[in-house]
Amino acid sequence: MLLGLAAGGEGWSLAWLKEAQLIQAIRAPRSLGAWTAGALLGLSGAIAQGLFRNPLADPYLLGSAAGAGLGVVLVFFSASAIGASSIIGDANWLVQLGLTGAAFVGALVGVSLTLLLAGGAGRPLILLLGGVVVGVLMAAISDLLMLLAPEALRGKQSFLLGTTGLLGWRNVWMLALTLFIALPLAVRFARVLDALVLGEASAGSLGLNLPLLRLVLVSLMALCTGAAVAQAGLIAFVGLVAPHLIRRLVTVTHGPLLVLSALAGGVLLLAADIAARSLIAPQELPVGVLTAVVGGFYLMFLLRKRANSLRV
């Protein structure tokens, strides 16, 4: 976090007092925002992997992030249609709530479509394929909307690349509030994910009301994804990598796994954000591009390792 406060566009600096204003207005919300957005993505990924019993599940790969993205684009589109100026970075509470709500609904629709297309979550690779198809479709619809309302393009672009550069205190509060609601709830329901380790039928035989519990967990996943996407744009693979790192390090049930994945997701995205600010300073990389490159390689590694053992 200290590194996040110290890393500026002009290089590194530790002159805290001289830069107090800069830190307070820009670097602190940005670093905190990156951490909370990463935590939400890590949590969302850990829920998805347990719920779909799929080690490769990730909000980005399940169509839920793309759905959230479409939700946000729809808000941009509507805003430009009624003549409002670009609302990206708008600090108004209502706008932030609206964006998060739209992203949440979009994420729910996205993941539901993926499940429908894949005929349930029983076949991991088919599920991912379904997610990719839904992702492409959602992106295409977003593009179509942009063609109709070019003035919304500016907002959309920085958003699609995934950026932490525009995060202010209001965004941080929004992200933190979502994490504050979602994390304890998810931990309360973590035993469902433990039970799913036994398989759907066995989990059902333990007396769990699976359809209802699945809906609760999918909604929590969509809420986390939606909030992260609405505030920081599409940031890939943090949700995939964070739970994996934790599982490599410790053997735990899903309760601790969810908490640790959120922590790891926060650390990962903050680290990526610091790197994005510093690697080609004074220019800045969109953090989504950086996570996509690093996470993409990690996914390739996982796929290669697991392709033989996964049921298609």
Partner: peptide, 25 residues
């Protein structure tokens, strides 16, 4: 209590945590 044929169960939780699921009801 019902025990399924093996094959469906898969996960990274410990053996003891799996057994503990029997106490969930």
């Amino acid at each position: 209590a019902w025990l399924a044929q093996q094959g469906e169960s898969e996960g990274d939780i410990s053996a003891r945590d799996v057994v503990a699921l029997g106490r969930l009801p």
